[in-house]
Design a protein around this nucleic acid. Structure first.
Lengths: 220, 220
DNA sequence: CTCCTTCGGGATCATCGTTCGCGAACGATG
DNA sequence: CATCGTTCGCGAACGATGATCCCGAAGGAG
């Protein structure tokens, strides 16, 4: 029922002016998340970061989830879009690599991007750039938007895998158990060469997925 | 530190036997989630479903997150794998469509799949089937596993979009605002033909992504 | 200077995940 | 059949969370 955060006016027109701003609160929340992880972003913790009370935050934000949306769009402002080069594949791979950079700077973002589409002003800039890059591409608009969604989800998945740590260990432990059990012959036959840290798989994967998703006659 | 849920023995060898089982609790949790959504899966609620106390569940499960892992693997048991047909693309698309069916039956799964890789026994079956389908494919093992990860993330993303409801409305509202504002010319130029309900975009997307991700000489 | 609206923030509520302690229940042992 | 060691069931309790509410304070408009 209530409109999106970005359509609701930030400050009241009359009365006592607010001491803080939505952006200030968002920045504080991002700082907390960067420092102590996503689960540390509680209203009390963010309020403490600002030296105020927890209830005060609800003057700026309707709900905690809304604050998380604001955070996601805030860091989406870190994209630095260059003018399209004419090679849409290169340009979209660049978007993907920039996205990974953002994810590396803000590890808490991965869960959020995957959970909520959360498109604010900076998200709109991303969509605009994406469509500009693909302006001459023959695919229809729906396919282009799907491609952006897949691109985002894919990068987020890779980013999450990068800082999974504990979970990955336990998963590998269980898979080793399954392999040793003898059932699941194909899993047992897996050979895991030590991953080459010098080789970055993301660009290749992005190229593959994007060319598969946006076929064209006039090549890259 | 503690091993995975699936490596920890379920019941103690000696002493008073447990009245319930891990599977029973998992099934109850799935029932609650299917009926009232993911956020309704609290220890107290699941315990009430079983007619017991909240603290009791901790005899079977180390933490709430572990219970969610069990739930995810539980519904992964709904896959019905057929023998590989010889056409790996068709077989993998079939896996994707089955996955969407599971997501439609259990809307809470989308967030979970994207959040945690959670691979249990049924997850291992899925990996095994995937590798069996791709047994004759020239790609190396790492690429095949990446393809499965992308496939899962992609289907989950589509599934989440299907039952997004509220969020999608607000997002569309904001995008309409941006389009009307006049900045972002490519967004303003978007034309949205009414989506054709008879056309299912998922198979085509999966084909595109998979062919892009797993290139081969001897085609589908 | 006054008034009206908004802000600030502490108290408060319901709920959550989790821990703890204790009495009861069960299998093994003699 | 009696005893013993161990585990289970469960309710109370703890700390923390998201959210609401109220009231005194503060600032701009007239």
């Amino acid at each position: 029922m209530p409109p999106s955060v970005w359509l609701r006016p930030e400050r009241a027109a009359v009365g006592r002016p607010a001491r803080r701003s939505r952006a200030e609160i968002t920045a504080a929340a991002v700082a907390v998340a960067d420092r102590d992880g996503a689960e540390a972003v509680s209203m009390r913790r963010v309020a403490a970061e600002l030296g105020t009370g927890a209830g005060t935050l609800y003057r700026y934000v309707e709900t905690r989830d809304e604050l998380l949306d604001l955070m996601a769009d805030h860091v989406a402002g870190e994209y630095a879009f260059a003018a399209p080069t004419g090679d849409w594949l290169d340009d979209l791979v660049d978007v993907g690599l920039q996205a990974r950079g953002i994810h590396r700077r803000h590890p808490w973002l991965a869960e959020r991007v995957l959970t909520a589409p959360g498109t604010g002003p900076h998200g709109a800039d991303l969509v605009e750039h994406h469509l500009a890059v693909l302006a001459d591409h023959p695919a229809d608009d729906a396919a282009k938007l799907v491609a952006l969604g897949v691109l985002s989800a894919l990068v987020a998945t890779f980013a999450r895998a990068e800082h999974a740590g504990r979970d990955l260990e336990r998963n590998a432990e269980y898979m080793a158990h399954v392999a040793a059990a003898g059932t699941h012959p194909h899993i047992s036959a897996l050979d895991a060469p030590p991953p080459d840290p010098a080789h970055d798989p993301l660009p290749g994967v992005l190229r593959g997925v994007l060319t598969g998703l946006l076929p064209t006659g006039s090549g890259s």
